[in-house]
Amino acid sequence: MTNRQQNAAWQAAQQWQERARQARPSQGAGGLKLLATWLLFGVMMIVGTLLGLFFLLIGWAMLPFLRHRMKKRAETFRADHAQPAGGNGTQDNTRSPDDKHSSRVLEGDYRVKPDD
């Protein structure tokens, strides 16, 4: 016997190779399975791409409606926060409507009228 046949690692490798040969499926079935797997993968990629394009087109079609709604919301916001026409810009928008006893300071030049 040679050293290779007596080496435990060499024998283990030979046994592993033999088990791998026995566990390997026949080539015909493996080729068909591989082809079917690739075809299934290709079909799934095509379906995924088509679904992505479909949702992209739906998103683009919804953009004008979304833009219209956002413009309406901005107009409402501007109208709610607008200063009254002819006002001097001293309105305090931070007060709550039911805050009746808070004092507001009006800025400007004041003169005291003499009593007549």
Score class of each variant (00 low, 15 high):
M1H: 13
R4K: 14
R4E: 15
Q5E: 13
A8N: 05
A9G: 05
W10H: 13
Q11M: 14
Q11L: 12
Q11R: 14
A12L: 09
A13S: 11
Q14T: 08
Q14H: 08
Q15D: 14
W16H: 02
E18W: 11
R19N: 13
A20W: 05
R21G: 09
R24K: 14
P25Y: 05
S26G: 08
S26Q: 04
G28V: 01
A29V: 02
G31H: 08
L32G: 06
K33Q: 07
K33R: 08
L34T: 07
A36H: 03
T37W: 03
W38C: 09
M44V: 13
T49R: 04
G52Q: 11
F54Q: 13
F54A: 15
F55P: 00
L57V: 06
W60T: 05
M62Q: 13
M62I: 04
M62K: 09
L63C: 07
P64V: 14
P64N: 08
P64C: 12
L66G: 08
R67H: 14
H68K: 14
H68R: 14
R69T: 12
M70T: 15
M70I: 15
M70K: 11
K72V: 07
K72A: 15
K72G: 05
A74F: 06
T76C: 05
F77C: 12
H81C: 11
Q83N: 10
Q83H: 07
G86Y: 01
T90F: 01
Q91G: 06
D92L: 00
D92R: 01
R95N: 06
P97Q: 03
P97A: 01
D98C: 02
D99S: 04
K100H: 09
S102C: 02
S102P: 00
S103H: 02
R104N: 10
R104A: 02
R104W: 02
L106G: 01
K113R: 15
D116S: 12
D116L: 07
